[in-house]
Design a protein around this nucleic acid. Sequence first.
DNA 1: AAGTCGTGGGC
DNA 2: TGCCCAAGACT
Length: 331
Amino acid sequence: MPWRARPGELADPYRVWLSEIMLQQTTVAAVIPYYEKFLTRFPSVQALAAAESEAVMQAWAGLGYYARARNLHACARAVTELGAFPDTLDGLRALPGIGPYTAAAVGAIAFGIPVVPIDGNVERVVSRVFAITEALPGSKPAIAEGAARLGDDPSARARPSDFAQSLFDLGATICTPTNPACAICPWMGDCAGRAQGIAAELPRKTPKKARPVRHGVHFWLVDAEGRVLLRTRPPKGLLGGMVELPGPVWRAAPWQPDEVQDEAPMRAKWRHLGEVTHGLTHFELRIQLHAARVDVIQAEGFLRLINVLDDEALPSMMRKCVALALLEPPG
DNA sequence: AAGTCGTGGGC
DNA sequence: TGCCCAAGACT
């Protein structure tokens, strides 16, 4: 992994922090290209702090959980103001976007603080090693106790960075969510979950609620010069600060055909292009995409040429809409 | 403290 | 195919 320091090398706090923010609820494979892009475009925390927020949101577009990007930028500016990353857990924890996990991860990996960062991997490993059968999230205190006990081992305390990353690697490659490779696990003999034959079913989790469906209508409006109408979403909340095709607020009830004209950004000969579906964390979104071409666009928002839409901070669902619109022959 | 907040890959 | 999930934070 590109953010991991080689043996003997000192970890760079900026790179450790950047990678840890990106890795929150996000797979390594998804993060790597974004991490490389950010290092190229923003080689230092000062460079990131000096960037426009639009540039940061654009670079983050597609990675999801966009509050991370907003907090990333705010954190870079705070660190630049401070002069350097804090080298204490409390100092790190006070920065925007850095919670208990990330403070511990940066503390251990970049500053050698003897602490065990508790992520999903560690929750799983610890739940199994100590055979914690209580379901998450209720079992978090017990997991924290177990993790701290593991971290109290002298060899762990001597190498906090290696110990933390070893736990990540153990969880990612051996102590996996399904079909754990207990036979080759270095902790097989010490694992209470293994001894009780319940390792693979741990950690238990409280069941999640079903995802409701929400319905949206978005409009692909092109002018005579081949420019598309876009707008920026409000800075906070869902997809905050990201760019989208115009349309009414998503709702539970499907949109009726006779409602569409009233919601359009301007009067035009609207044509139904099709449906885009996209799964989000707490609901499934179904977007009806409508398109029209007019001479001059008079509506709220801003205009961009079709061939530079890639440079905008469009979230994935909006890129799906763009892709659908471009499939259609220009009307 | 339970809900909110994205995405793409794996099974 | 539908569900689960992945180095969580914030409110």
